[in-house]
Design a protein around this nucleic acid. Structure first.
Length: 494
RNA sequence: CGAGGCGUAGCGUAGCCCGGCUCAACGCGCCUGCUUUGGGAGCAGGAGAUCGCAGGUUCGAAUCCUGCCGCCUCGACCA
């Protein structure tokens, strides 16, 4: 008699998403509007993401640093496009002191403690960082600068959803400075590729990579690259972005260097970021109606052992057997937890760990001790197919094998789903029918202007990215019929 | 920020239309004890709610009125 606390995806996808987050105890809404509390289960996923990405950043030559949360208002206005992009969602600090309220109830803002210049809580750090880089860069010998920072940022969103869009979120932002345009472009693409590798190899989430259109690019960038994933409701989610900032910020903050040829030049810049939104992407890519599904490489606990007993004698015997298996599995580098809590039935524990998305579960009872084996269940399958009895001697190897299989299986399943719902379309009518009906990705030729993009709003869709086209193929624009070499993904998006 | 819906114990709800015999009921969860334990166990007892907040109408408000806050769905904006 399974208790149904999770809405079916087919009934209400948004509610399902929220139910998963609640039941798996990933996060909850905070007392502050638009903000979330990331609970230990959710934060464990972020920590795993952080560690993986951080290693990848280090491997590509980057170092970590930290810049302030507060940005003087005047900094933000130095790059015109940039201000325009963020002005509507900034939190502003105007005062620095409270005092006891005059009516004796609580505290009030002390009007005499007004800041001369207001501070903006960073929505992103380009302006702060470039005001600092100005002091660090004089010569071409000071370049490149390859810095990443792990931080929180604030964007005062009107409508928020846990992980996908919150007023405050956690992310990493890389900010690099280069001698040439080519070097900056190479860096931008390198980091896009790091994101793609992370998404596909660790999150088991297939992505399309490509360039953003003028309308969708980052405020202040020359151009933006993105990784776009398809969620199970067939909507697109922008999962990471990498920007070639050109010389826009160097010019705005007057950051120049003297090159080896003696000429003084503006520095070339990039920035790239990936946020806790990825946790939302992870949930919406793999999870099912029973709960969270975590790919093994991002599960903080990869294996859980549920012991089964009746009498105290059985308990001692089963735990002894289970502990030896636990140690053996741990020795092979897998994270494993033995759930020996009293007061919960095995069936209850099965469901509990399933909802939390633990990839592999071992069920060990008297029968297994007797028969020298264990029941092994994997989270990416259902019913009998998910379970198998494994001989004692083969457990360690089998668990390792299943984790590998599962990582692959989840990726292949997600890729098959995405490909199945990605259509090469020729007419606007077909695209409209797709996007207003079952949904999915329309892969189409597009020679769009920003005005053409506006038109897509009538079908609530947007150009997600311009796909790479190394062979220089051409086709007729789905809207205007003009010949173009730009192929794009159009879809509804988060 | 626009339209709609909702706010009663940790969670999900009933009661609201027709104010009073309901300072509030039920299921899940929680605590204690006993029996249980291979897919969310059973019985018995128990704790837990100033009915989102602030005003108002009334002899009397969870119930009627006003304002505010929050959440959800859909739009506009965005990672």
């Amino acid at each position: 008699m399974a208790k149904r606390n999770i809405t079916k995806r087919s009934e209400n996808y948004s509610q399902w998403y929220l139910d998963i987050i609640r039941e798996a105890q990933l996060a909850e809404n905070a007392p502050v509007r638009g903000c979330m509390v990331i609970r230990p289960n959710g934060f464990a996923i972020w920590e795993k993401m952080q560690r993986t990405l951080d290693d990848m950043f280090k491997a590509t030559g980057h170092v970590n640093a930290y810049f302030p949360l507060f940005i003087p208002k005047s900094y933000l206005s130095k790059e015109a496009q940039h201000v325009e992009g963020f002005a509507k969602e900034c939190a502003i600090i105007t005062h620095y002191r409270l005092k006891n309220a005059e009516d004796g109830n609580g505290v009030m803002v002390d009007p005499t403690a007004k800041l001369e210049e207001e501070l903006i809580v960073r929505p992103t750090s380009e302006t702060m960082i470039w005001s600092v880089y100005k002091n660090w860069i004089q010569s071409y010998r000071d370049l490149p600068i390859l810095i990443n920072q792990w931080a929180n940022v604030v964007r005062w969103e009107m409508r928020t959803r846990l992980f996908l869009r919150t007023a405050e979120f956690l992310w990493q932002e890389g900010h690099t400075a280069h001698r040439t345009y080519e070097e900056a472009e190479e860096e931008t693409l390198r980091m896009l590729n790091v994101y793609r590798t992370f998404a596909e190899d660790y999150m088991a989430m297939p992505v399309f990579t490509g360039r953003k259109t003028e309308g969708e690019k980052f405020a202040g960038a020359e151009h933006t690259y993105t990784i776009e994933a398809m969620m199970q409701d067939r909507k697109a989610l922008q999962a990471g972005t990498s920007h070639n900032l050109g010389q826009n910020f160097a010019k705005a903050f007057d950051v120049k260097f003297q090159d080896s040829d003696g000429d003084v030049k503006y520095v070339w810049a990039t920035s790239w970021g990936l946020s806790t939104r990825m946790i939302g992407a992870l949930i919406m890519t793999h999870s099912d109606d029973r709960g969270l599904v975590l790919p093994p490489k991002l599960a903080s606990q990869q294996v859980v052992i549920v012991p089964i007993w009746r009498s105290d004698d059985e308990k001692a015997m089963v735990l002894n057997y289970a502990e030896r298996i636990e140690h053996e599995i741990r020795e092979s580098g897998i994270t494993v937890h033995l759930d020996d809590r009293d007061g919960y039935t095995p069936g209850w524990k099965f469901n509990e760990w399933e909802v939390r998305g633990i990839p592999v579960r071992l069920e060990i009872g008297p029968r297994d001790v007797q028969g020298k084996n264990a029941m092994v269940a994997r989270r990416d399958m259902e019913g009998k197919a998910a379970k198998q009895i494994v001989p004692r001697d083969a457990i360690q190897a089998q668990v390792n094998q299943i984790l590998k299989d599962m990582q692959n299986n989840l990726f292949e399943k997600a890729r098959a789903f995405r490909d199945q719902h990605t259509y090469d379309l020729k007419t606007y009518g077909d695209m409209k029918e797709l996007l207003e009906g079952e949904g999915g990705f329309a892969r189409v030729w597009w020679n769009g202007t920003p005005e053409d993009e506006e038109k897509l709003k009538e079908i609530k869709a947007s150009v997600r990215c311009i796909l790479p086209n190394p062979a220089g193929e051409k086709g007729a624009c789905i809207l205007t019929g003009k010949e173009t070499d730009q192929r794009v993904i159009i879809s509804k998006a988060y």
